[in-house]
Amino acid sequence: MSLFFIITALITMASAIAAMTLRNLVHCVLCLTVTFAGIALVFLQLGAEFIGFSQILVYIGAVSILMLFALLMTRGGTELTLKRWDPVHWITGTLIGIAGFGVMSFAIFNSSLRQSKIPEAKADSLHALGNSLLSQYVLPLEVMALLLTVALIGAALIALPEKNVFRKNASFSKNQESGNK
C-alpha cells in the first residue's frame, strides 16, 4: 500500500514537472494527462471511487483534449515558445516555487493535523455523497448547473469566428480585385 503510494506520487510529480518544463507543448499536455491520471489514482487509494473516476472522465476525457485542440488551433503544437532562454526569469520562478513548497511543508510539519489517525474504512460514501449533494448542498449544485450552462454558451460565443469582420474584408478584397482587373 505504502510502496504503491510512493510510486504513484513519484510518477505524478515527475510528470507534473515535465508538463511545466518541456519544450514541445503537445508533450507538455500529454505529461499533464499522466499527472491527472496519477491524481485520480491517489483519489482511488484514498477510497474515493466516484471522485477518482470522475477525475479521469473529466480531466483526461475532456479538459486535456480541449487543451490539445486549443494548442493546435493556436499553432502551438509545432512552435517552440522557449526560444528566448532567460536565466534570471527561470531562476526567480523556480526559487519562488521552491520557497512556496518550503513554507507549505513547514506548515504541514508543524500542524496538529499530522497526529490525525486514519479511521476505519468509510462505508457507502457514494450514497452519502449523493444524499448530501441533493439536500445540504442543493443550492450550490443548482448554481453549478447554471454556471456550466453559462460557460457552455459563453465559450461557444467567444470562440465564434467574428463573422461580420470576415465577410466585410472578404467582400472588400473581392471588390478590390475585380476593380484592379
Binding site: 500529454l30 494527462t33 473516476f53 470522475s54 479521469i56 472522465l57 483526461i60 476525457g61 475532456a62 486535456s64 483534449i65
Partner: peptide, 8 residues
Amino acid sequence: AVGAASEL
C-alpha cells in the same frame, strides 16, 4: 472513464 481515454 476508461472509454474517454481512447480519445486521447
